[in-house]
C-alpha cells in the first residue's frame, strides 16, 4: 500500500479517465477494510453535509452561526492502467443515507454490497434500494468473519431474496486478492448487463 504523503499522492499524468465503484453495506461489515486492502493509496475520508442534501438552499441561510451535521465516507484508488483510475467509495447502506448518496451512483460501474452473515437483515434495506433503483448493477460479496456460520451461496441467495441474475460471491475483505475477485464479479456482471437485452 502506498503512503498518502504528498510525493506519491498524485495520479500518473497519463491518466485520462476515472471510474468508480460503490462499496455499500451495513455498519461494520468490512467496507473500510476492503477499501484498505485493495487501495494503492492510504484510504482517505471525506464528508458530505446532511442538511445540504435534504433541505433547500433557502433553509441553509438560517444556518449561519450553527454547525452542520455531516456524514463521512471513505475511499481508495487503484490505477488500473496508464489511462484509467478506479475509485472505490465506501458508504453506509441504510435508507436514510440514500438521498445523500443519490448522485454517487451516477456514472458508477456498479455497487458491491458487503454482507455479514451473522446479521443478514442489516443488508435488506440496501438490497431493496438497489433493486428499486434498477439502474445500478450490483453484486453481493459475503464477508466471512471467524465466527460466521458457513452457508451455501444458494441458501444465502434465498435468505437475501436476490434476483436470479445477481451474482453472489464469498470474500475476505482483509485479503487483497479476495477483494479484487469480488470486484471482478461485479464488473463482469456490469458488462453482461450492459451487453444484454435488458
Amino acid at each position: 500500500m502506498g503512503s498518502a504523503g504528498s510525493a506519491d499522492r498524485y495520479l500518473p499524468d497519463t491518466v485520462q479517465q476515472a471510474v468508480k465503484i460503490l462499496v455499500v453495506g451495513d455498519f461494520g461489515v468490512g467496507k473500510t477494510t476492503m477499501i484498505g486492502a485493495v487501495s494503492e493509496i492510504e484510504p482517505l475520508r471525506t464528508e458530505e453535509t446532511m442538511t445540504q442534501a435534504s433541505v433547500g438552499v433557502d433553509d441553509l441561510a438560517g444556518l449561519d452561526g450553527k454547525t452542520t451535521t455531516t456524514v463521512a465516507m471513505d475511499f481508495g484508488r487503484i490505477t488500473l492502467s496508464p489511462y484509467t483510475a478506479l475509485y472505490l467509495f465506501g458508504t453506509p447502506g441504510q435508507r436514510r443515507f440514500w438521498d445523500l448518496w443519490a448522485g454517487l451512483g451516477e456514472g458508477a460501474v456498479g455497487a458491491l454490497v458487503l454482507v455479514d452473515t451473522r446479521r443478514i437483515e442489516g443488508s435488506f434495506e440496501v438490497l431493496d434500494q438497489l433493486e428499486l433503483r434498477g439502474d445500478l448493477p450490483f453484486a453481493v460479496a459475503v464477508n466471512h468473519f471467524p465466527d460466521s456460520t458457513r452457508h451455501s451461496p444458494q441458501a444465502l441467495r434465498e435468505a437475501l431474496d436476490l434476483e436470479p441474475g445477481t451474482p453472489i460471491v464469498n470474500c475476505d475483505a482483509r485479503s487483497r486478492s479476495s477483494s479484487v475477485d469480488a470486484l471482478i464479479a461485479l464488473v463482469k456482471h456490469a458488462l453482461a448487463t450492459q451487453k444484454g437485452p435488458s
Binding site: 479517465q17 471510474v19 487503484i78 488500473l80 492502467s81 489511462y83 484509467t84 478506479l86 460501474v109 479484487v180 470486484l183 471482478i184 464488473v187 463482469k188 456490469a190 458488462l191 450492459q194
Partner: peptide, 9 residues
C-alpha cells in the same frame, strides 16, 4: 471502459 476495468482488475 468496463472491459478495460475488468482487464485491469
Amino acid at each position: 471502459t468496463l472491459q478495460e476495468v475488468l482487464n485491469g482488475l
